[in-house]
């Protein structure tokens, strides 16, 4: 574990917590893409499937973190699609999730480290996570604005994988550890946030709201 991965995971936890708090406190999921949250839930379940296969005692933080990610993302989907369904902006959350899931699944079968079920599920989860934020960014471009709290959520969510890139550089240099698939997907994922990062740093930090087109 290094400082970059630690802060990456903390940033990820913060993003999940910010979104849950926003929906719970405002009792509304306006401006939140339910599809993105569904895709994240799929990512966690397919990536941490080993938790369900052979139950390992929860002695280490990694297992606990995995359970937190899975339960928090499923709970977020429950809030969006059931509890606060009336506030779900289905009309603007219109990006076809199939256009993200099918290519990720296909690519996972073509480009992977080893052709076995668990490894392909992990690879699918990595590819899907890289593009899972697209419905959320698409929704913001359709509505033309993002609530400040949602911007903080996106900043934390985007920072998590950006910090992981620093973690991979660190591990390459000090542990000569390389996970090419995770690195390439992580770079693609972070690039998708660049436009948002620019808006966040030039606007939200100054207390303004993000309104598109910028």
């Amino acid at each position: 574990m290094n400082i970059f991965r630690l802060f990456g995971d903390l940033s990820h936890l913060a993003a999940i917590a910010i979104l849950l708090l926003k929906i719970w406190k405002t009792r509304s999921c306006a401006g939140v893409s339910g599809k993105t949250q569904l895709l994240f839930a799929v990512c966690f379940i397919t990536r941490y499937i080993d938790l369900f296969l052979h139950f390992v005692s929860l002695y280490n933080t990694e297992k606990v973190m995995k359970l937190i990610y899975i339960s928090a993302s499923v709970f977020t989907c429950y809030l969006i699609f059931f509890k606060f369904k009336a506030t779900y902006d289905g009309n603007h959350d219109s990006m076809r999730a199939e256009f993200l899931i099918v290519p990720a699944a296909g690519l996972a079968c073509l480009i992977n480290t080893k052709f076995d079920a668990i490894e392909i599920l992990w690879t699918f989860s990595i590819y899907l996570e890289a593009v899972a934020i697209l419905p959320q960014l698409f929704l913001i471009s359709k509505t033309g604005e993002a609530e400040t709290i949602t911007s903080h959520y996106l900043f934390a969510q985007g920072s998590y994988r950006a910090l992981y890139i620093l973690n991979w550089i660190y591990r390459y240099h000090y542990e000569s550890h390389v996970d090419t698939i995770a690195i390439v997907a992580g770079v693609v994922q972070t690039i998708l946030y660049c436009d948002f990062f620019y808006l966040y740093i030039t606007k939200v930090v100054k207390g303004q709201k993000i309104v598109l087109p910028a």
């Binding site: 990820h12 995995k66 490894e119 992990w122 992981y164 996970d179 995770a182």
Partner: peptide, 10 residues
């Protein structure tokens, strides 16, 4: 072995 493939990151 599977340890080689074990992905040790979240």
């Amino acid at each position: 072995g599977s340890s080689l493939l074990h992905h040790d990151e979240l």
